[in-house]
Design a protein around this nucleic acid. Structure first.
Lengths: 145, 145
DNA sequence: CTTTTATTTAGAATAGTTCTAATTCCGGCT
DNA sequence: AGCCGGAATTAGAACTATTCTAAATAAAAG
């Protein structure tokens, strides 16, 4: 697979927030786009290092935080495990495989989302919902990790 | 409200797992039952201390872990915040109020739960689902915290 | 160019939780 | 009653993921 290069899109989004496009931010972003297996910051760090050997872990954290702020990436948490990062911006749930530790994106039909918002009593104004399944996946699905 | 004393039920559940009922476990459990505001381990610690002044934080963590194992209590996580504990065993979602930090239980009709399981593709066998709303609650609801 | 501001960096600091090793507690046996 | 053995508690050290700090670097603006 050719390395994704969404630098224009990224640059645009960063600019919208008054931020600069930097090599570090670009490489971190591309790492997330190229292997969408919900890596942790540490995993991103080691992947990025092959392209930018002198990058620091703090910078990786900074870049990830920036990408999340710009709505280019979602941060995903399972229990107290290290935060994982996900470039899928469609509304979706996560399936966390207890055996393998792998995370799979689960598409969420708008009907289900609508029904979910229906369960909120008056006075509760939700900005976002997070849905996490936990269990075991009997089939491995290409592209997830 | 009189202090809840579910010691028989607790003793039973513990025994089922080959564990003993201890003053520490009982007080920790009662603290959770008496104020269902999803306290953190630290909060439980300080509440328990008024009854058992010499208890240690490690013991509070141990007891909470034990109660979770025995299915008497649920551990709840929001992002990377400290784990909170919830004695509500009915299937329910959580609403996390961003302004106040308070957590509210949201009842989940079985129909919604069923529909949710429907979104899982073949090969995904979910043991549990976790649903977290994030936003602001315009009304304060008695009994939640 | 120089100034200003953003970004990166290494390492220290922090926070929540778990681990370790020693002590205490308690039930069952004599 | 007294002892044994496993379970539970404890204090404090250790650990891990993350954030903070302060200095160095880079890059835009004047």
């Amino acid at each position: 697979m050719a390395a994704t290069d969404n630098s224009e899109a990224l640059t645009q989004r960063l600019a919208d927030s008054g931020l600069r496009s930097t090599p570090q931010r670009e490489v971190v972003y591309n790492v997330l786009l190229n292997k969408r297996d919900h890596p942790t910051a540490d995993e991103v760090f080691s992947r990025v290092k092959s392209e930018l050997p002198t990058i620091s872990l703090a910078t990786v954290y900074n870049c990830l935080e920036t990408l999340v702020q710009c709505d280019l990436v979602r941060a995903v948490n399972f229990e107290r495990e290290p935060t994982r990062y996900c470039p899928n911006l469609q509304p979706h749930a996560h399936f966390h495989d207890e055996q393998t530790g792998r995370t799979h994106d689960i598409e969420l039909p708008p009907t289900v989302l609508a029904e979910l918002n229906g369960v909120l009593p008056r006075g509760f104004d939700a900005k976002s919902v997070e849905i996490t399944f936990r269990g075991k996946a009997t089939k491995t699905v290409a592209g997830s990790g």
